[in-house]
């Protein structure tokens, strides 16, 4: 079990308020991702849940039990750190066994659990090495191994993939998702990378300056962003925003349209513009178009759309895909 409820959780470091007050419910078995720009308080929130920081006010409940004042170890959670935080003087085996030793489990049971975890994580041949003798991906797996043997009620991950190269990040992302399907344990995953958030999460919590901007499934956030911040943060490349005169036809101060929801034509369309840089990814081509009266817009074209720098093109938004926002940046529905 691992249902976590935050009630008016507030955190200040001295005079600086980092988390002004958060209410959030995380259901048992969910994969929740906290996403937001660097410095927005994601790690702080995770550390509050872990018990590594004390809340300034508010309360945290795990499975109906108030754990606000409890020590980290007593919360039954496991954490995987960005730096892996492996014990450098212990073998991989002892690293993984450490939480079990601390729990005074008997040696036979420890051995079995470590062996099982090593098999799941492809670490069997590395059990007698020190962390210093492993690659980044292997260290990451040891850190995960140390977390899973405890059978925690929830896993906490703080940007676990940010020290890995792009290819390995892709693989580890899948491995962690796969692990979640096998274990069905609550996982809270912190990242600043919206692609990680979109691909892994059941539920995304978008944070900005310590506040929750929106909570929802990846597709909810993609299709119905509550405000300009979420609209701009979720989705890659970024949503285009059209302001002022050009937004008038939709009766809103600002409208947003994603690059993939603009139709591209060489003959006619709503907005006229000049093609700037084209980014060819093979499957797609992203064109940066300087549209008259709007400015730079990004458009997704097919992999082989024939344009060159300086061509004139026309853009037409798909009607049903236009997002409208009021003066305060909130979505108008």
């Amino acid at each position: 079990m691992g249902k976590i409820i935050l009630k008016k959780v507030n955190k200040s470091f001295g005079a600086t308020q980092v988390i002004p007050g958060i209410d959030l419910t995380i259901e048992d078995g969910e994969f929740v991702v906290f996403v937001g720009p660097s410095g927005c308080g994601k790690s702080t929130l995770l550390r509050l849940i872990a018990g590594l920081e004390d809340t300034t006010s508010g309360s945290i409940e795990i499975d109906g039990r108030d754990v606000t004042g409890e020590a980290p170890a007593r919360r039954g959670l496991a954490m995987v750190f960005q730096s892996y935080a492996l014990y450098p003087h212990m073998s991989v085996r002892n690293n993984i066994a450490f939480p079990l030793k601390m729990a005074k489990m008997d040696q036979a049971a420890i051995d079995k659990k470590v062996t099982d975890a090593a098999r799941v994580l492809n670490l069997t041949n590395y059990l007698d090495r020190r962390p210093g003798q492993l690659s980044g991906g292997q260290r990451q797996r040891v850190a995960i191994g140390r977390a899973i043997v405890r059978e925690p009620s929830a896993f906490l991950f703080d940007e676990p993939l940010s020290n890995l190269d792009a290819a390995l990040r892709g693989t580890m992302r899948l491995e962690i998702s796969e692990l979640h399907h096998q274990l069905k344990t609550t996982m809270i995953y912190v990242t600043h990378d919206q692609v990680e958030a979109m691909t892994m999460a059941d539920k995304i919590v978008v944070l900005n300056a310590g506040n929750i901007e929106q909570v929802g499934s990846p597709l909810d956030l993609y299709n119905k962003p509550d405000n300009l911040f979420v609209a701009g943060f979720i989705g890659s490349p970024r949503m285009n925003f059209v302001k002022g005169e050009a937004a008038k036809p939709w009766n809103a101060p600002t409208v947003g349209i994603r690059p993939e929801h603009l139709k591209l034509s060489k003959e006619s369309g709503t907005w006229k513009g000049l093609v700037g840089v084209a980014e060819h990814l093979g499957s797609d081509t992203f064109l940066h178009v300087n549209a008259e009266g709007i400015g730079m817009m990004t458009v997704r074209a097919g992999g082989d759309f024939p344009v060159t720098h300086g061509d004139t093109v026309y853009l037409t938004p798909e009607e049903g895909r236009i997002h409208r926002f009021d003066d305060k940046g909130l979505a108008i529905r």
Binding site: A78, M79, F81, A85, L86, P88, M102
Partner: peptide, 18 residues
């Protein structure tokens, strides 16, 4: 000594003594 390692130990259930 990186602080995260001590925090990891704390999460792993080590008492202050441990």
């Amino acid at each position: 000594i990186p602080g995260e390692i001590l925090e990891a130990a704390r999460m792993d259930g080590a008492s202050l003594w441990g």
